[in-house]
Structures are given as structure tokens and as C-alpha cells.
């Protein structure tokens, strides 16, 4: 395990991160685009290939590790965050990734996701959100819109969906972002930013399931309307969107006010300057509330990025401190400590 330094940083191509396994996703699945993007990103990070450990749960997305040539771990439903925590605590030098889906991460594994995020374990978590259960053939998921008609909900789903970004923000995640399977460059930049983040990095990736929920993100991804529907969050930049960036948002009370800059050019100064370091998550949630109105765009990019001590570093520091203070453990001394007597 050689430490990574710039001098010895290996140079890879995407091909170096492809495994010999036959890919078994349905033709046309959004997962292919994500896989290709992640392979390219990993190749460019300068981290030796053997120092990646990619852990997944169960579901279509969770087959991901098999298709990477790194160390990979396909586990059981929902538990990848907990397994990855063990991997990272055992060897903090590794770059540990979690690949999960909306069902795996937010339904059966919601508890674990909450806890890795609030602990700030240094993991890169990619959640492929297709708003449907694919591998079990088309039941509604915790991110499906209310009223979703599926095999298990022939009269429509009754429950309210959970929004992954809101969930992560509320859990106190130090890096929260959203991208889209087919927005190749944006996805690449977002995943790379997550990779660079020290701490729990959560990326929701809108992913089209062309078999059971085709077109779920069509209004956002259709080439004709893309620019009207995507609101890119850029740190230090005003919230603007649209083909000519002529639309924007300003903070008004506890919500965002839409401003048409063509009609009101004087209000450009009122536009909210995006601050990904706003610690409470309030701004992130405000922005994320916009799509509730279908007339609004969908925010993409980094909702929050904060530097905070990581769980794994804190745990290691306690061991180091104990050793510094008490010296390395001496078993013989420990056994014979306390009240002893000799016969």
C-alpha cells in the first residue's frame, strides 16, 4: 500500500477501471452512462486502483462494483453504508465508495444512510434514483411520486415521497449534490467534486429506468427543454437559469421568488448568491423546494459542501491518543492487573 503522492500518482485511462464481467443491465438503462462516467472519474483521481473499495447493497444499481476493476463488494439489501463504515474505519487510507439506489438507500437502508451522513464517515455515496424498484420488477419506491400506479399499487401509492437531497441535508451531510445520468459533463464534475471531498459525500443521480419508469425525468432531460428546466447551483454565483440565463431567484422571506430579468433587469442585484457553505442546510432545502411547482426548474449541482472532522479520523485519533498516553497495550500487564494473589 504505497501512499499516494504526486510524484508516484499512477496514470490510468477509463479502460483500466473496466472489469472483465459481462454487464447485465437492461439495454438503454441509465446505469451505463453513470458507469462510464465514474470509470473516467476514478481513472483521473491519481489514486492507485487497489486503494478503491466500492461497496453496494442490492438492486440494479448495486451490481455496479462488479463492473469496476477495483476492489468491490456487493452486499445485502440496504447495508452498504454500514459495511463501508467498517472498511473505512479498518483502513482509513482507502477511497471507499458506496453505490446504492432509492430503494436500497432510503427504504430498507434508510437508517444506515442517516447515520453515515450524520457521523461524516469519509465515504463517497452515489445514489441512483430512478423512483422505482427495478430488480423486483416495478413496485413503487420511497421516492416515487404520490399516486404512482405500479404492480403493488394498482390504485396509486398513498404515501408521500422522500427527497434524497433533503434527507441528506437534514442528516447533516457535509457534501450534498445532485446530477443526472445523461448530463455527462455535469455528472463527471459532480462525482469528481464528491471524490475530492473529505467526509461523507452524497450524490443523488437521477437515473432513467427505461423498463419500469421510463421518462421519469423527461421534462428535465429532454434536449429541447433542458436549459429551461435545469438550475445549476454554482458557489458564489447568482441563481440564474434559462437559455439566456434570463431567469433567476431572489430570497424573499422564507422562500424563493422567481424573477424574470428580461422584464425586471433592475432586480439582478436581488438575485440570491449561491452559498454551498451555508451550514444549516436551509438554503439547500429552499432551492430543493422549487420543483414542487412544475413551472420551476430543478436544482442540480452542489447543495452543500462543508469541511468538518470525519468520523474515521476521529476514531483513529482516539487510538493514537490512547497509545501516546498509556503506551501500546501490554497484554501480560493487563492480565495481571487489578487484585491478584499468588498460591
Amino acid at each position: 500500500m504505497t501512499p499516494t503522492t504526486e510524484a508516484t500518482a499512477p496514470t490510468y485511462t477509463k479502460k483500466d477501471f473496466e472489469s472483465d464481467q459481462t454487464i447485465r443491465w437492461c439495454p438503454g438503462c441509465g446505469d451505463y452512462a453513470i458507469l462510464a462516467t465514474v470509470q473516467s472519474v476514478l481513472a483521473g483521481l491519481g489514486i492507485p486502483r487497489e486503494e478503491f473499495a466500492v461497496v453496494s447493497g442490492i438492486g440494479c444499481s448495486s451490481r455496479f462494483p462488479y463492473y469496476l476493476s477495483t476492489y468491490g463488494f456487493h452486499s445485502i439489501h440496504g447495508r452498504a453504508p454500514a459495511i463501508a463504515t467498517g472498511v473505512k474505519l479498518a483502513n482509513p487510507k482507502l477511497s471507499v465508495w458506496v453505490v446504492t439506489g432509492d430503494g436500497d438507500g432510503l427504504s430498507i437502508g434508510g437508517n444506515h444512510l442517516l447515520h453515515v451522513l450524520r457521523r461524516n464517515v469519509d465515504l463517497k455515496i452515489l445514489m441512483f434514483n430512478n423512483r422505482i424498484y427495478g430488480l423486483t420488477k416495478g413496485q413503487y419506491s420511497p421516492t416515487s411520486e404520490q399516486g404512482k400506479v405500479t404492480k403493488s399499487t394498482p390504485y396509486g401509492s398513498v404515501d408521500n415521497p422522500v427527497d434524497p437531497v433533503n434527507f441528506a441535508l437534514a442528516a447533516g451531510a457535509t457534501f450534498v449534490a445532485r446530477s443526472v445520468d445523461v448530463f455527462r459533463q455535469h455528472l463527471s464534475d459532480t462525482v469528481a467534486a464528491a471524490a475530492m471531498h473529505r467526509g461523507a459525500a452524497f450524490v443523488e443521480i437521477y437515473q432513467n429506468c427505461n423498463i419500469f419508469n421510463d421518462g421519469a425525468f423527461e421534462s428535465l432531460t429532454a434536449k429541447a427543454t433542458r436549459e429551461e428546466k435545469a438550475l445549476y447551483l454554482e458557489h458564489g454565483q447568482p441563481l440564474r437559469y434559462g437559455p439566456e440565463k434570463s431567469m433567476g431567484f431572489a430570497l424573499k422571506g422564507a422562500s424563493l421568488e422567481k424573477i424574470d430579468l428580461k422584464q425586471h433587469p433592475e432586480r439582478e442585484k436581488d438575485l440570491l448568491i449561491w452559498d454551498q457553505e451555508e451550514p444549516s442546510g436551509t438554503l439547500g432545502m429552499l432551492a430543493n423546494h422549487l420543483p414542487k411547482d412544475p413551472a420551476n426548474p430543478v436544482p442540480l449541482g452542489i447543495f452543500r459542501r462543508l469541511e468538518k472532522p470525519t468520523f474515521d479520523a476521529g476514531m483513529r485519533a482516539q487510538i493514537d491518543a490512547a497509545r501516546a498516553k498509556r503506551g501500546p497495550g501490554n497484554l501480560e500487564k493487563l492480565l495481571y492487573s487489578g487484585t491478584t494473589w499468588t498460591v
Binding site: 453504508p81 454500514a82 459495511i83 467498517g86 472498511v87 479498518a90 437508517n111 447515520h115 476514531m315
Partner: peptide, 21 residues
């Protein structure tokens, strides 16, 4: 390393992760 996990499942799965590593 003692890890007080969020539940019994995370307790064992984190241990499996550590063994893997």
C-alpha cells in the same frame, strides 16, 4: 476500534467490512 453502531445489523455488517479490509 469499538464502533457503537446504529443497530444490530450495522454492528455486524461494519464488522464484516472491517474483516474485508
Amino acid at each position: 476500534t469499538t464502533f457503537q453502531a446504529e443497530d444490530e445489523i450495522a454492528a455486524i455488517t461494519s464488522a464484516i467490512g472491517a474483516s474485508y479490509a
